[in-house]
């Protein structure tokens, strides 16, 4: 299944400045690992050496934080979108990784 992955400003450097990339996978983890082949260095920023989500990264399927779903095993549907955002203090969320937001 092909899904869109929206990248925050801080990660776009690994994807040639692109805001949204396409990935293949039936789960969030599969889709993210699919990106590693195309954009070396990107996924290492999101998934740590233990294979879990990096502490300061939040990953959303549509609007829901996957940490409270099934994390990297969260299944993906045909029209789902993945968004990656850094964790910041309340009062200032970087939403540049979402579609339709000013970049």
């Amino acid at each position: 299944m092909s899904v869109s992955v929206n990248l925050p400003t801080v990660l776009r450097v690994h994807a040639g400045g692109t805001k949204t990339v396409e990935a293949e996978g039936a789960t969030v983890g599969e889709a993210l690992r699919d990106l590693e082949a195309k954009y070396p260095g990107l996924v290492g920023q999101v998934i740590n050496d233990e294979g879990a989500l990096h502490k300061f990264v939040n990953v959303y399927v549509n609007d829901d934080d996957v940490r409270y779903l099934s994390s990297l095993d969260t299944p993906l549907g045909p029209s789902d979108e993945i968004s990656i955002l850094p964790a910041v203090a309340g009062g200032a969320v970087d939403q540049s990784g979402f579609p339709g937001e000013a970049a």
């Binding site: 801080v10 300061f56 850094p86 009062g91 200032a92 969320v93 970087d94 000013a102 970049a103």
Partner: peptide
């Protein structure tokens, strides 16, 4: 929270909080 200022000032993820 919804976006306030778009935080482009964040240079790397280790600056997360």
């Amino acid at each position: 929270p919804p976006a306030g200022e778009i935080v482009d000032g964040l240079r790397n993820l280790e600056d997360g909080y």
